[in-house]
Nucleic acid binder design. Structure first.
Lengths: 231, 231
DNA sequence: ACCTGAACACCGTTCAAGT
DNA sequence: ACCTGAACACCGTTCAAGT
């Protein structure tokens, strides 16, 4: 398959796409670098999941020997840390520069955070286990400022931040995992129906069939912010 | 060090402790069984963490060959599933049988859930990736009943359940991970102080130094329940 | 029904060496 | 300064075989 890619070319659009992705070819190998390693690690993680990232496979994709990686990178843990932080940048809210709308600001940042992690489903469950990189700290700083501005008592700001953190992490980790295999969900629901006399209530409300993840996230976040808002 | 343990014995208390832990001896091997495998897996996970669980090490502890395990168990994933569910049983609230206090009931169950997972720090981050076993479904059922009883609109019950789930999972996974290495936390705080001009707000509120995990969990859960309560 | 050892196709990382 | 291959001490699991 890969060998065929340069086989049949004829139209201009083909040549454009050629210009856009001419890498990957056998011998063009740009020199190894931290950035290239991290970028390729993210590719590999997106494609194969956490267990798919292997120093050997990573080296293969980069066209280098395995041990060459260790010049640029401490070890596999290091690769995880770097890949994770590279995926969590935040560019800030769209238009409103110094808005009064602290709540809109918080919601925007947290929904963006969740979306970033869902674009790379391996990232959410990795995050809590890793050191807090600059991108993460930046988001926490922004959160802290918004909440102070909202008039939340100093004694409660940290509690509020961690509550929002917990909610977002829990939601995203769960969503990313459920997403992975529809089989599991179907099996779970089937088992649930079979045992409906033991779990009548969640069977009735169809807890496990609820598919509106985005809506549930938004709504639940609203409830949490209601509870956190100063009365 | 370990070799010394049986070296100097003299008093009665020594002999009692001998009677209490006489297993582990070379030849007493009770027959292999699913239950014994799961129990030993939990021991191993508690002692060595997720990466410490190895089919080979597990077999060693059980005094059997590696491949003997595969008669009782499908594969390593299976061992994880079983170990996880075995750790999440819930016995219900202490005294009050049919109390009016839905909120107290919910808080008790969720704090017990968190405590169970923290007793086995590997369990929290595993849970969202695994199928929902009977013990987990039982807890969700109880939650659902309490919330309905509280008068939460049917349309909101599922959102409420998942919000509480998200909060508890996020809190417990984070706590269990931070706990693992004080070094990381110290390093993070140091880096933060060094960069205090970039993150002035969270530096001021000492976000990363806050040590009262239990209190923060309880307080944040209170805020969330405030938001979820029908107005 | 239950247990086993040898073998396969992998891992991450150390080391001593190359350019 | 940057890259490499061989080697070590591990993995999970298949298979064919034992009792």
């Amino acid at each position: 398959m890969a060998a065929k890619r340069s086989g049949a070319r004829s139209k201009r659009s083909q040549r454009i796409s050629e210009l856009l992705q001419p890498v990957q070819e056998p011998h063009s190998e740009p020199p190894l670098s931290r950035e290239r390693i991290v970028a390729t690690a993210v590719e590999l993680l997106d494609a194969q999941g956490v267990d798919g990232l292997t120093m050997r496979r990573l080296a293969d994709r980069l066209g280098s020997g395995v041990m060459s990686l260790y010049w640029h990178v401490d070890n596999k843990e290091d690769v995880f840390d770097l890949a994770l932080d590279s995926v969590l940048e935040y560019r800030g809210p769209p238009q409103i520069v110094e808005s009064q709308d602290w709540r809109g600001e918080v919601v925007h940042m947290l929904e963006d955070w969740r979306a970033s992690m869902l674009r790379h489903p391996w990232s959410a469950s990795l995050l809590p286990r890793r050191a807090l990189g600059p991108n993460i700290l930046g988001r926490l700083e922004l959160l802290s400022k918004s909440l102070s501005r909202a008039g939340i008592a100093d004694a409660d700001v940290n509690v509020a931040i961690w509550s929002l953190w917990n909610y977002v992490m829990g939601a995203t980790i769960t969503r990313a995992s459920f997403d992975r295999s529809d089989d599991d969900r179907a099996a779970a629901q089937q088992r649930l129906t079979r045992l409906s006399e033991r779990y009548p209530t969640i069977e009735r409300t169809r807890l496990l069939l609820d598919n509106d993840w985005d809506g549930a996230f938004r709504k639940g976040l609203g409830f949490l912010l209601d509870g956190l808002s100063p009365r």
